[in-house]
Write a protein that binds this DNA or RNA. Structure first.
Lengths: 195, 195
DNA sequence: CATTAAAACGAACGTTCGTGCTATTTTTCA
DNA sequence: TGAAAAATAGCACGAACGTTCGTTTTAATG
């Protein structure tokens, strides 16, 4: 009972720290210090650093879903919901939901060439994300809101690229216009496909 | 004399290693092992890990420029050269010029929220890259090949996003269609702006 | 060929990493 | 309230980290 609460608070911190320092730069000692716990006490919750990393990814996924999907599901399916997902993504960058920028963009580039269970988990999450985007596109087509000619996988690829590009320009280049550029591009692309 | 040659071979290895493990994951001991050198002998070339990281970034930049710009400069300025840069970028992903995927995409996401001279160097390089892209766009406009209505910064943002998106899909998701999707999107966007 | 400077080495420093024990404290529940 | 269980702390470990040092090997030069 108590353990579960502690575990959750450890993971919330771990997510923030990992978004700043990377999943590999995430360190048990530093995490314990920040939480005023002993290394071993914290460690006991996970049994290995790898398990901590996996649990951190899962916790970040919950935050991601809560920020991106939950609000969009309130919109009617089809074009409005698709647009809501896009807007939610850009708002999530602007608001700095993760202090070091999108957790999954960072983890994706950190682990894209590092075989192992951590990479597998990141990849699984990103596969699900892209498939969810494709599904949103397909629904907009099914509702007759969007041209049936566009390949959902292609459009999902493009939208995701604009999101990651906004994250890059915003956090590395401090381009305060980044999310606006991305939003204009998204809307132009979607409006052109609207039927 | 000899030292300069050694230094260069160290840096070439360092670039490859850093593209796989990250600039922070790049380790002097591991690098020395791979090159069958002593840690201290290698270390003496740089004086600190930070200096090694900076030199590694510069070496990666040379490879980047050689792969992306050099071939494009052979094309006539304007639309052909702009398109050549885009094609060069996607080819550079497909051919795995860096074994762990684009060095600068990885470094950008690794250091986007980590103040310090390393971040500053990565940012400087990426600023130059984006400005070069904007310049290519502006030249295409000046030549009368591309609509003057589009903001070069906006278009450069979009193109770069598609490149990074291709790198992401190719290396993390093993989407072999990634570079084709990106190429289709690039061409569709540019053709629509052609005058 | 001898001299000198440059380059590489091996050993050690203090620190931090992840992990394994054992003991102690805190929480839970009959 | 007291026994059992869960959670946390303390301490130690071997390995790896970046870095420093004095020494030895190699290369360049008169």
């Amino acid at each position: 009972m108590k353990g579960e609460r502690t575990r959750q608070s450890i993971l919330e911190r771990a997510v923030d720290l990992a978004s700043l320092e990377g999943l590999e730069g995430l360190t048990i000692g530093r995490l314990a210090d920040e939480l005023k716990m002993s290394k071993s006490g914290l460690f006991a919750h996970f049994g290995s650093k790898e398990e901590l990393q996996l649990a951190t990814i899962d916790t970040a996924a919950e935050r991601y879903i809560a920020e991106i999907f939950r609000p969009a599901l309130a919109e009617p399916r089809g074009y409005p919901r698709l647009l809501a997902v896009c807007r939610a993504w850009l708002s999530y960058v602007r608001r700095g939901v993760f202090p070091g920028g999108c957790f999954f963009a960072a983890a994706s580039f950190e682990f894209d060439s590092r075989p192992g269970v951590v990479r597998d988990r990141v990849r699984k999450m990103m596969d699900e994300w892209i498939h969810a985007l494709e599904k949103a596109v397909r629904m907009a087509q099914d509702e007759g809101h969007l041209s049936p000619d566009v390949d959902p996988a292609d459009l999902a690829f493009e939208l995701n690229a604009l999101f990651f590009g906004a994250n890059f320009a915003f956090y590395l280049r401090n381009d305060t216009e980044a999310t606006n550029r991305a939003e204009r591009a998204v809307i132009a692309r979607l409006e052109a496909l609207r039927v």
